[in-house]
């Protein structure tokens, strides 16, 4: 692949007290790809996401985004880089005192000179692009269902058209139809905006439907990365069980189930 890496994680070590979560972890995210990050519960998928966006300080190693080390950045550089990524947290992490539309307006308020009318119509556009009906604009997060909160969180993450989007379990807890629509939405947005997507998920259907590459977190590091076809060949007990288990077989599209 000749595409550049937008995120490079090298020899990352994260630990809380004596508990080491990651040790010598390497990971790349290429421009325009959707990278699925999978791993058992408690392997630190969300922790990895948080260390990349700088919410957790790694104990050792480096995390570079667009070629710059995020752990050693000045305030201005950090601000610049934060405009180029968007994060969607597991439950949307919407501000509960603001309506959906106001939540999406929050990042847009950072744009100098943007008129109120432009900001409102852009926020409404993002809400609609995330697949929410127009009347959801006025709703407060506590009025929304889990799936709608996730969509609203995605709308906020995409408000400034970032180049990288981090999605933490976007389809967890959604009904299959909603999850399928979400997968299509992510792929559609990636194609339209050339997004790079860092997707933490457990959902095998999402992995099949969206991801260009998959990174498996196990044994405190990225055990292996590759396409879905490559994952099926990996000879590691956990990986084999994950990708060959009964749920995995059910999730495989018909054209792959023979191969």
């Amino acid at each position: 692949m000749s595409r550049e890496n937008v995120i490079e994680v090298r020899n990352l070590r994260t630990q809380f007290g004596d508990h080491v979560v990651h040790q010598d972890l390497d990971l790349d995210l290429r421009r325009g790809e959707i990278l699925g990050v999978v791993g058992g519960s408690g392997t630190g998928k969300s922790v990895l996401l948080r260390s990349i966006v700088g919410l957790i300080r790694p104990a050792a190693g480096s995390v570079s985004v667009f070629g710059r080390d995020v752990t050693a950045m000045s305030g201005a550089e950090r601000e610049a880089i934060e405009r180029r990524w968007g994060v969607m947290f597991q439950d949307g992490a919407l501000f509960s005192s603001l309506s959906v539309q106001e939540n999406v307006e929050v990042p847009l308020r950072a744009v100098p000179g943007l008129s109120d009318e432009q900001r409102v119509s852009l926020a409404q556009l993002k809400v609609s692009m995330a697949g929410l009906p127009f009347k959801a604009n006025a709703d407060f997060p506590s009025d929304l269902s889990g799936g709608m909160r996730k969509r609203a969180g995605l709308a906020r993450a995409l408000a400034l058209d970032p180049e990288i989007v981090f999605l933490d379990e976007p389809t967890a807890g959604l009904d299959p139809i909603g999850a399928d629509a979400f997968d299509k939405l992510i792929v559609g947005l990636r194609d339209a905006l050339n997004l790079s997507v860092f997707l933490v998920t457990h959902d095998l259907d999402t992995l099949h439907a969206c991801c260009d590459r998959i990174a498996v977190l196990a044994e405190k590091r990225v055990l292996t990365t590759g396409t879905m076809a490559e994952m099926l060949q990996v000879d590691h007990p956990w990986v084999r069980e994950y990708f060959h288990g009964p749920r995995a077989r059910a999730a495989q599209p018909a054209d792959r189930s023979e191969g």
Binding site: F66, E77, A80, R83, L160
Partner: peptide, 8 residues
């Protein structure tokens, strides 16, 4: 690769 600020 330089770090460009999208706001510029």
């Amino acid at each position: 690769m330089t770090l460009s600020d999208p706001s510029q």
